[in-house]
Amino acid sequence: MTRSLPDRSGDRAARISALPMEMTSARIPFFASGLPTVREIWRRRELVGLLVRRELRARYKGSSLGIVWSLIKPLVQLLVYYLAIGQILGAARSIPSFAIFVFIGLTTWTLATEIITSGTRSIVDNAGLVKKVTLPREIFPLAAVGSALVNLGIQFIVLLAAMIAIGQFPLSWGALWLFPSLLLIVTFSSAIGLLLSAVNVYLRDIQHLVEVVLIVAFWTSPIVYAYSFVSTLQLGWLLQVYLLNPITLGVLGMQRALWVAGAGVPGAFPPHLGQRILIAFVISAVLLWVSHRIFQKLQGNFAQEL
């Protein structure tokens, strides 16, 4: 074999000999920080962006309304809940600005469910890539989080427009509740999505089970009814259980931030909401770490299970 460019190949050999050998098969101990993976994902963040774009472009490609469809679904849901629960069942009489209230709850809920359901499916849906391309597999659930956030952004534009239209724009420090609430929702949902994406590879029933559980879970958060309805039921310790749900706390935090008319309603929010959100966030963050450890343990066999 003739080497006509000895210099270039010599350079490469010298550079390679300076690099450390990396184990592709290192047995990572369970109690590791997971920081190397985080760094690797950060290095490939452009890829996450492209996968999010692919997801969104591909979902609406060929439909003439395109991304508008991601608005139509929550708007129709809003209309149905507004009419059925607000007007017919009469919830709107005790909840001021009922439409805004429901829409805040729905967008928050949609964010959580979208992260969880599409996160759960992400590894199986991308089986072709998982089997053939070397990359950190956490990227796929992460891309699901990304596309859910983009959808949230679109719905927020509509929400803001509606709030401006009815003159109830949240121009106060209370609006800052938005950030811890969203952070809590994203952290908790990502933890669940990441864990289930790995389990779903081995047990495909998970993706169906999740959808069923979420139908029930929808009613365990104050989205189409107010928190004050629950707190007046004299539930005792059950109320505390109700308030353990991070999604419930996230929804309440979002309402605290954006539901201007709710500020004047007594008992609209539970006491110590801030502390509850903080504690739930810390627990969710730990859960996210545990999920990631389990994900790392399970991912070794992804390629042969898919």
């Binding site: 592709t24 290192a26 089997k131």
Partner: peptide
């Protein structure tokens, strides 16, 4: 070698930039 699967026993290590053409147009 590509790190797509893990060995049952033994070890694989490598260095440098890797491109794996295991299937064209996988992505």
């Amino acid at each position: 070698v590509g790190g797509i699967m893990q060995p049952t026993s033994g070890s694989v290590s490598r260095r440098g930039r890797l491109a794996a053409l295991l299937e064209l147009g996988a992505g």
